[in-house]
């Protein structure tokens, strides 16, 4: 038998391959248009990473957009994360909070990131915590700054893609100047 005449069946023909390549940039362009509305990280979110030395006023809509960026339209799981914060905080400079996530830290059932946000702060993002299965319980306590009395939001992003959120209102008598 002559080896020359054996034809291998290709998964992609040359024509399909070329048309596919030509379609890729147009599709990515569409995606970037969509991102401007919902998925793209907002100005304030990116601004936090730079050293900034001037005053900025709190903006509730911007804060809500940051929260939307994290959730990205996923369904919220109930009773996933439990947030303990005081009802009344005398000093806004140190507000002690602690949270714990309901999960067995086995395989995929652990929180990859936990976000803490305060909506009425000029910079709503406060901290991100990256857990691993080796940290036996996803429980943490920290002290934060609050400018005025507002909601604290805690969002847990699990390793399997699910997400949960809680919030609690804290009344602050003397606010921090952050």
């Amino acid at each position: 038998m002559n080896i020359k005449f054996i034809k291998h069946k290709l998964l992609l023909s040359r024509r399909k391959f070329i048309t596919g390549i030509s379609l890729v940039p147009s599709l990515s362009f569409l995606r970037s248009l969509d991102a401007k509305e919902e998925v793209g990280s907002p100005f304030r979110d990116r601004f936090q990473t730079y050293r900034q030395t001037f005053r900025i006023e709190p903006d509730l809509e911007e804060a809500k957009r940051i929260v939307r960026n994290i959730i990205k339209g996923r369904e919220l799981r109930e009773d996933l994360i439990l947030l303990n914060a005081p009802d009344i905080a005398e000093n806004g400079n140190t507000v002690p909070i602690n949270f714990s996530v309901n999960c067995s830290m086995i395989n995929d059932d652990y929180p990859e990131v936990v976000h803490i946000l305060v909506l009425d702060n000029p910079f709503p993002e406060i901290a991100k915590f990256y857990f691993t299965p080796q940290s036996g319980e996803a429980e943490l306590s920290i002290r934060i700054r609050m400018r005025t009395s507002s909601n604290i939001i805690a969002i847990a992003e699990m390793a399997d893609g699910t997400i949960g959120q809680t919030q609690s209102f804290v009344d602050v008598t003397i606010g921090a100047c952050s």
């Binding site: 406060i126 940290s135 996803a138 306590s141």
Partner: peptide, 15 residues
């Protein structure tokens, strides 16, 4: 970020 208070205290768990 800048929202963490001065002299930051943090406690967490480890197995």
């Amino acid at each position: 970020y800048s929202g963490v208070s001065a002299n930051p205290f943090m406690s967490f768990k480890l197995k």
